[in-house]
Each structure stands twice: as structure tokens, then as C-alpha cells.
């Protein structure tokens, strides 16, 4: 990030405000990016999406990544999750070095260490809610922990919707199914990409509340990309990205604080939201 010649307000490595109740002394880091560069295209068409991002995500922390459109927040998340390769630098999930893994390694990583929640819910229409929730475990050939499954289902309030197909569920219910699916495998880290983007505010609040609870109560690590200050305010920590670099960070944010920071970021560019 120094190479980018930007002012660094906070060094995430030195973050002292780590919270959460299940941080283990031996390895408090759930995911980490070290000097990550992402360049698309070459020559005149070259676009630098990430310019040497270094960031660490502690266990049991709910982190939101914010930034204007084109700031590289989604790219960062994709690189962290192993969905996209980095041009330079390294990404780790837990003990695993993601950078350089082949397809088989990435598949194993996604299967065992990572959970996803997408904006478009992305449920399989042929499977019932319960089957969708258990899909990652079935693919991995792992037996679900019944007690944990019940807990998760109770938390997302889907007890009487388990036999339904996605088409028979509302958007909020579908996203709760997606949350349950991510959580039931107890991954090292859950990546959520605009999880409330397609939901009305009430359903969005439900989902966000549930995500926050899973962090607080069960020590789940969540990294969420959003451009909604209200959604970001549910997080423990907010990282701001602009032009492919981390430019700011907030802890225990409120929507107003987030909005305030965003306005500053947007100031030089066009106002996005």
C-alpha cells in the first residue's frame, strides 16, 4: 500500500480492537491478505483493481467491507475467498495459503473452510430448503451435527419451511436458507456479498441480525461486502476501500458514522449513493 503512495490511516495488522469471544490464542486470524495486487487486462486496457491491500480478519469478528462502486471491495472478497486469483501478494484462510492452490485445493478449501452468502440467494431450485442447507455437508460427505443444525434452523426461524422448495419461499426466507447453509458447516470464515441487496428493509434487518448473532453467540467469522451504511453498522468493524486500496477503518460503527466516512470517500468522485 505504500507502493500505491496512499495515506494509510490504519494498519489493519495492528488492529487492537479485536473483539469476539472465541479467539484462540494460537491462531487468532481467520483470513489474511498480504500486499495483494489484482490487475485485469494488460497494456492500455490494464485496470488495477487492488493496489497492495494488506488486511487481517480476526476470528469471531463481523467485518464489513465498504467502498464506492469500482473501489475493489468485491474483488478483494473474491480474492480472499479463493474465487479469484491474485496478481501479486498472498491470501491465507486460517492456516491455508490460498494463493497458488489448484482447482482441487480450492475446491477442498471452499468445501471445508469457507461459506458463501450471495446477493441473489443462489439456492438450488430442485432441492428443498433443508437439502439446500445441508448441501455443502453432503458434497463434502460430512455428517451434519443434529444439535447444531437444530440450533441454526431455530435461529433463522425456518423450522416449518424445511420441506419447501426455494420457489415457495419469500426472498427473506430464501436468504435465511442461504445463511443457514453457510453456517451449518461451521466454516473458518463466511463471505457475504451484498446479502441484503435484494431484500426489503425488514427482511434485510432479519438477515443482518442473524449474521451478527451468529458472530456474537457462536464466534463465527464473517466478512461482508456492502454499500449500505445501515447494513455495515451491524458489523464490528468496517474497512473502507477506494481505488483498490484500504483507506479507512471504523470500529463499532453506527450508520451515521459509516455514511459520514462514505461521503468523504465519494467526494472526489461522483456521488454514488
Amino acid at each position: 500500500m505504500e507502493a500505491a503512495g496512499r495515506t494509510v490511516l490504519v494498519r489493519p495488522d495492528h488492529d487492537l480492537f479485536t473483539r469476539g469471544n472465541q479467539v484462540t490464542a494460537s491462531d487468532p486470524v481467520a483470513a489474511r491478505a498480504d500486499d495483494v495486487w489484482k490487475v485485469y487486462g494488460s497494456g492500455e486496457a490494464e485496470v488495477i483493481a487492488l493496489r497492495g491491500v494488506s488486511v487481517t480478519f480476526q476470528r469471531g469478528v463481523f467485518t464489513a467491507i465498504m467502498g464506492p462502486s469500482g473501489s475493489g471491495k468485491s474483488t478483494l472478497m473474491h480474492c480472499l475467498a479463493g474465487l479469484d486469483s491474485v496478481t501479486r501478494g498472498e491470501v491465507h484462510i486460517g492456516e491455508t495459503r490460498v494463493t497458488g492452490l489448484g482447482d482441487a485445493g480450492l475446491t477442498k478449501l471452499r468445501r471445508d473452510k469457507v461459506g458463501f452468502i450471495f446477493q441473489q440467494f443462489n439456492l438450488l431450485p430442485t432441492l428443498s430448503a433443508k437439502e439446500n442447507i445441508l448441501l455443502p455437508l453432503s458434497i463434502a460427505g460430512r455428517k451434519p451435527d443434529d444439535a447444531w443444525f437444530d440450533t441454526v434452523i431455530k435461529t433463522v426461524a425456518l423450522q416449518d419451511r424445511l420441506g419447501h422448495r426455494p420457489a415457495q419461499l419469500s426472498g427473506g426466507q430464501q436468504q435465511r436458507v442461504a445463511c443457514a447453509r453457510a453456517l451449518v458447516a461451521r466454516p473458518e470464515v463466511i463471505f457475504a456479498d451484498e446479502p441484503t441487496g435484494n431484500l426489503d428493509s425488514k427482511s434485510g434487518a432479519d438477515v443482518l441480525g442473524f449474521l451478527r448473532d451468529s458472530v456474537k453467540t457462536y464466534g463465527q467469522t464473517i466478512v461482508m461486502v456492502t454499500h449500505d451504511p445501515v447494513a455495515a453498522s451491524y458489523a464490528d468493524r468496517v474497512i473502507f476501500l477506494a481505488d483498490g486500496a484500504v483507506v479507512d477503518e471504523l470500529h463499532s460503527p453506527t450508520p451515521d458514522m459509516v455514511l459520514d466516512r462514505m461521503k468523504k470517500l465519494d467526494a472526489p468522485a461522483e456521488v454514488t449513493r
Binding site: 482447482d103 461459506g115 448441501l135 458434497i139
Partner: peptide
């Protein structure tokens, strides 16, 4: 894409 994302191998 989804089932690959949740860990299904090629």
C-alpha cells in the same frame, strides 16, 4: 457456480 462455490469438485 454455486455448487462449485460450496465445495463441489469438477
Amino acid at each position: 457456480g454455486l455448487i462449485r462455490a460450496v465445495g463441489m469438485s469438477r
